[in-house]
Design a protein around this nucleic acid. Structure first.
Lengths: 194, 194
DNA sequence: TCCGTTTATTGACACGGTGTCAATTTACAT
DNA sequence: ATGTAAATTGACACCGTGTCAATAAACGGA
């Protein structure tokens, strides 16, 4: 983790971010990113060992810029289980569109690239923690009607990035409708009532 | 199932099928498929214009072998809306594992390949028809608590291949648990009751 | 049986994209 | 002004797709 204040590195990360965002899934070529960053293709290899690591670094960069930690702590503040569920669904659901382009790229690459898979699964595991915490809070309140493991699996799947993509991109749901509906279904599935 | 006198074309399709099944998403190389089919790499291009079309042909081949039509007609036979929903979820849910390897490959390719995208979206649109029909049947019975469009979107998403993958592959759900749980959530989400 | 046609093989090649390398130039700190 | 780090340039190896031409094998019909 180099602490160098190289602006080139950031320009590369921002260029990659922009390109992946504008064309999710279709991994940009190194030469495209270089051009967008106003830098030579070889300069990319001065800062990142390979394309995969560049994209992984881009997601980390996003997390820093957006401050995922703050986002998570917000949902931790909720007292009741139901509030916590709502806070988590809202926070994560609204985070997805911000990271979608890069995340989807990583997701697709993770099918063929072990390093990408590692980074992607780590990210998904982190998100699962949030699901598990919300589920545990519901259980503490005595409103959970499923085993915690199953409930977590379900919530985790409901909140997956591809679910978000399907509903908002393919079905044209607004972000608000997505959040409300996922929350409604989650409450029904986990607590048996809305 | 396989005729020993199978034509070269079919041997290629079966080789592709097998390879994509054993390694979903990681699109096999043309040379791998050729080797598996016991044929030269160039022979593939005698039967299919390119890799994408070979994979598309492989999904069509699967649909023929499995007889998707029969599967769909089974759920059409149900009288009540709730029965129809159950029949459709069961039929499609049990079809997914049969086609998963090839389907996922096509899904991933469709991010970067327009032809693959066309075939994939067509397939998903077909499946959506089944969802829409089940939803319409529920509406006729007066048990649907959502707009038909929204209900269809939701059911379609619940039944997506990636949802199946997440629950059965990443969460280790059995096929039975998957079917039961998706059906339970679908009933809750669409009818408000299990 | 021979012949013509279709089908398959062989080996070569162009192309695009990643990753590596060496030589060189630019920028900058003191 | 000079030494070092950062960036550029141009070349190259490698891999996988798709194309091509020449050749070989399979097969059906008179």
């Amino acid at each position: 983790m180099s602490r160098e204040n190289s602006s080139t590195r950031e320009r590369i990360l921002n260029a990659a971010w922009k390109l992946l965002d504008s064309n999710p899934g279709t991994a940009a070529r190194m030469s495209d990113i270089a051009k967008a960053a106003g830098v030579s293709r070889q300069a990319l290899y001065l800062h990142f060992p390979n394309r995969t690591e560049l994209f992984i670094a881009t997601t980390r960069h996003q997390d820093e810029v957006f401050g995922v930690q703050n986002m998570l702590s917000a949902s931790r503040a909720a007292t009741s289980g139901e509030d916590r569920l709502a806070a988590f669904v809202t926070a994560w659901g609204n985070y997805i569109p911000k990271i979608f382009g890069v995340a989807k790229t990583l997701m697709i690459m993770s099918e063929t690239d072990a390093d990408a898979a590692g980074a992607w699964h780590e990210r998904m595991a982190d998100m699962r923690e949030g699901c598990a915490a919300a589920v545990a809070a519901l259980a503490r309140d005595g409103v959970l009607i499923k085993e915690q493991k199953d409930a977590t699996d379900l919530l985790w799947t409901l909140l997956s990035i591809t679910t978000w993509e399907q509903l908002t991109r393919l079905c044209d749901w607004s972000q608000d409708r997505y959040i409300n509906e996922i929350l409604r279904v989650a409450r029904l599935a986990l607590c048996g009532r809305a």
